[in-house]
Design a protein around this nucleic acid. Structure first.
Lengths: 132, 132
DNA sequence: GTTCGTGCAAACGGTTTGCAACAAT
DNA sequence: ATTGTTGCAAACCGTTTGCACGAAC
């Protein structure tokens, strides 16, 4: 049910090697990759993938709600296979983006926003990741 | 000290009509405009402004810390003259972006993020603005 | 043989850069 | 004369679209 072939069948499109490669890459990549990075990764698995197919497949997955795009880098769309609510930390030196579990942070004060109907929210943190 | 001419003198560049128009427009615009919107607005005041001058002037202001860019819309840079810490609400129907005062929201749980040195953060809310 | 999917290349929109003309000193 | 600034056009980058070829049914 979770493998690329089943996913593609469920979407009603043919499980071609190109699409399987794109799906394998994006579903297991939690580093918030760009389309270009996913093209490069997918070509390791299936060298004949074209840019158009990468974009088509990613946009299909987004439209069907299997992945999300996130506003985390200027001028590029980054893709996120993590559908659970979570926050993000952006390392200002490396540009790396880390998921922060939802329970780690609490946001209060929504009652101050009577004029707004809030459907969703997230915290975006910036700074440096400490070396461990 | 706050007028466009003084600002440009302080930046060490000549206060040309084109730059004055761009600065007037961006400093008084709290609707998170794009460069294209600012070009249009600046041309009302100085019809001979070119796109290049808009981008040059905006980038100069960003480099000097007089305005900021924000990651709030896909594929476009939006500019924000509000240098105080604040949060943002994005109306998912209209695309309008509203500033939320810093004190309206509280974020707790930073102690859960021992691996990160947090320099800044903000909450991004999404939903619909209620008609008043 | 009709449909679906592909890779390629061209087009597109936002941004940056190169450059020749021009204004300021 | 030298320097700084301009508008225009071309280049650029990420993304989308058009299209003819090829594979699947």
């Amino acid at each position: 049910m979770h493998d690329a072939i089943s996913i593609l069948r469920n979407l009603g499109v043919q499980p071609t090697p190109q699409r399987i490669a794109v799906i394998d890459c994006v579903l297991h990549n939690h580093s918030h990759p760009t389309a270009e990075q996913l093209l490069k990764a997918a070509r390791q698995q299936c060298p004949t993938v074209s840019r158009a197919t990468v974009y088509n497949t990613l946009n299909l997955l987004v439209a069907k709600g299997l992945i999300r795009t996130q506003l985390l880098r200027e001028g590029v769309v980054v893709f996120d296979p993590n559908l659970e609510r979570h926050h993000h930390f952006i390392d200002e030196e490396t540009g790396e983006i880390h998921d922060i579990p939802w329970e780690y942070l609490g946001v209060s004060g929504g009652s101050n926003l009577k004029d707004f109907h809030i459907r969703d929210y997230q915290v975006i943190l910036r700074g440096r990741k400490k070396q461990e």
